[in-house]
């Protein structure tokens, strides 16, 4: 059976206990090494941040964790409800910050601003709140972007993509689901369609134009297994789908990298001045 024919859950199957153990240790190690004892993250009511919340709860004592719920007026009521259910279940300290006044004030003079601009602004407002809490509490910001989003560039630069450490960035959405089930994430969160929740009734799959299962299968074959375009098409992937996804990955590379610097000196940051991120920790 080719990777195109195998059930996606099987093709992308991971060992949830092992992955959870590694992510938990990763969090503990990278956070404490950086001289921090606390972590802060945004909790949206979606599956990715729910998994991060569960991992944090395994890695740290409750008093070292802060989950921040940051609804906007158009956010689905179920998002806040599901996020609250989770913090109650995990007994996590949390805070609710309504970002409506900040975002609306920003666009007060520009009522015609596009949904893209508004969505970006919301994502960046949430980032601002998290980094403010980071400075206030001496807490490291934990990222909640998964591998599918990172590869597709389905996120806002300096918005939801911003964080200090990200335990789930090497897991595809399909794998996040496996981990979430293992961690006991509530049914309501597991079952709902993934959504950036930036406007009413938005869903990721509708906006992207394909399902996570379809794109995860392709990305896994393309990125992890390094199949060529010809192999992928021979296997049964539609050529237009392959090209569209490959293009998305390519054009969004900038979101995954620090800004490019004009090289002028003998030793340029990121080019030939290369130290580990964990330098001096």
């Amino acid at each position: 059976m080719t990777p195109f024919e195998r059930p996606v859950e099987e093709l992308l199957s991971i060992s949830a206990p092992l992955a959870v153990e590694m992510m938990t240790r990763f969090l503990r190690d990278e956070v404490t090494k950086a001289g921090f004892f606390k972590v802060v993250f945004g909790l949206s009511g979606g599956i990715d941040s729910a998994v991060v919340a569960c991992l944090a709860a395994r890695a740290f004592p409750r008093e070292q964790i802060l989950a921040v719920l940051m609804p906007y007026k158009t956010s689905s009521p179920s998002s806040v409800r599901d996020a609250r259910t989770l913090v109650e279940q995990l007994e996590l300290p949390f805070e609710v910050v309504d970002i409506t006044p900040m975002v609306d004030a920003f666009f007060a003079e520009e009522p015609e601003a596009s949904t893209l601009r508004r969505g970006n602004r919301m994502a960046r407002e949430r980032m601002c709140v998290l980094y403010d809490r980071s400075a206030r509490d001496g807490a490291l910001v934990v990222g909640t972007s998964n591998k599918t989003e990172l590869l597709l560039g389905y996120g806002t630069q300096f918005g939801d993509l911003a964080s200090a450490v990200n335990p789930i960035g090497d897991l595809y959405k399909t794998q996040i689901r496996q981990v979430a089930r293992y961690l006991g994430v509530p049914r309501a969160i597991l079952d709902k369609p993934p959504s950036a929740d930036l406007w009413e009734d938005q869903t990721d799959e509708q906006e992207l134009g394909f399902t996570y299962e379809e794109v995860d299968r392709l990305l896994y074959c393309m990125v992890d297994l390094q199949y060529s375009r010809r192999d992928l098409v021979d296997m049964g992937f539609a050529p237009r789908f392959v090209d569209a996804v490959a293009r998305r990955v390519r054009v969004n590379q900038f979101k995954r990298r620090p800004p490019v610097i004009a090289k002028l000196s003998r030793r340029t940051i990121g080019v030939d001045f290369r130290y580990p991120r964990d330098w001096g920790m």
């Binding site: 590694m22 240790r25 990763f26 190690d29 990278e30 090494k33 450490v165 580990p276 991120r277 964990d278």
Partner: peptide, 8 residues
């Protein structure tokens, strides 16, 4: 053992 730059 240990973690360096995300590598376990």
């Amino acid at each position: 053992v240990g973690v360096e730059d995300g590598v376990t």
